[in-house]
Design a protein around this nucleic acid. Structure first.
Lengths: 211, 211
DNA sequence: GTCTATAAACGGATAGAC
DNA sequence: GTCTATCCGTTTATAGAC
């Protein structure tokens, strides 16, 4: 599945413009603090008009979250392809680094759609959570499988906890990382090194950067 | 400063009962989704009566957040005292483990007051954030100083990022850790080992547990 | 200290004109 | 496809009785 199909009506159709504006406001203010009147104002429409494109505020939010997951999932698959296509066989650390870079690039490169999964998912209406949980589970399963293959000595329980710890470390960066002040790939390398080698070992720079 | 002074009017005065109920609801539903009517109902009062104890909803939320930080800060100081009083001089890893355990124990042991700092701080009203930022900074500074002393080879920038990565890994546990299914001190040990030694090294159990 | 009553504003959602 | 107008519920906060 591809995350960004061009809509039939063109690149910036009414529906997509609403989706972009909604994502930006949800990311900025949270779900409940964002009113439909505010989103409508951002695309120079009236609140009632949104209901031609979306059935409810919940449905609009689900659409935004679904797009966020689709982008993350595509990013993971792209990283897996680059690893498979690498001329020299990569070691485990380089393999992990490729995926951490991909995750962080998509996360920060589509902030409005992806950050909501970190900040607003827990307090979202139950119906919203239920609608998006399967897609989230599928993405998390990719990571669990990856870590399991990279750390063959660990039990399934340990892999599960390590994934949560890694996600906590990486995803919390949306609350503080500022792309104008730091380089995202550099941060990805620091996190990978910390996770893989530990903070007590001197940091070795990863030169296997892909662009 | 002590975090839990007994109020003049007794252990469960009106004000403290409101504070406890508010914290529980804020943690469960978030700031905006929690109405004053709901909090009042939990303590068998009417919404208007809350204004005798608190000037506004914002002020009530700030009081909850401030108590959360005070508890975390006291927990850190307690860990520091245990380290200083240890008969044998502890190594860096054991020193870190003591503080990670203390942080996690206070975090999960006072969930209603502390989890809000992880889940609801970012979307809180600007006035609320401004009021609580100094206390948060002071707690973070304790950790920055600790990590700096434990990792003398690292630059201040690196220490800052490592603290954020560690906080992300630890604090995100409030979204998934269930004390009924897992042992919190065991998790603290896993996180400490992962942070200090890295996931690629076999896990060595820490026997220096304090009770 | 707690209550009732109410002000004033804002929310999601719908109906029907154009 | 978008607008206007409106319904109806909920919110924080205040005023004054008890």
């Amino acid at each position: 599945m591809v995350a960004a199909p061009i809509a039939e009506t063109g690149p910036s159709s009414g529906r997509d413009r609403i989706l972009d504006a909604a994502a930006a406001r949800f990311a900025e203010l949270g779900f409940t603090e964002t009113s439909l009147r505010l989103i409508a104002g951002d695309v120079e429409m009236k609140a009632g008009s949104l209901y031609y494109h979306f059935g409810s505020k919940d449905e609009l939010f689900v659409s935004v979250l679904a797009r966020g997951i689709a982008l993350m999932s595509d990013g993971f698959d792209g990283a897996a392809q680059r690893v498979a296509a690498a001329a020299e066989q990569q070691d485990a650390r380089a393999h992990l680094a490729e995926h951490v870079r991909a995750h962080l690039r998509v996360l920060h490169g589509n902030f409005a759609f992806t950050s909501l999964h970190v900040t607003s998912f827990r307090t979202a209406p139950e119906a919203v959570r239920a609608a998006i949980v399967p897609e989230r589970d599928a993405y998390e399963a990719k990571w669990t499988a990856l870590l399991g293959s990279l750390l063959p000595g660990r039990s399934a329980d340990e892999i599960g906890i390590l994934r949560l710890v890694l996600f906590g470390a990486i995803n919390s960066s949306i609350e503080w990382f500022d792309a104008r002040r730091g380089n995202l790939d550099d941060f990805a390398d620091v996190v990978t090194d910390q996770f893989w080698n530990g903070a007590s070992r001197p940091h070795e720079k990863d030169d296997n950067d892909s662009t």
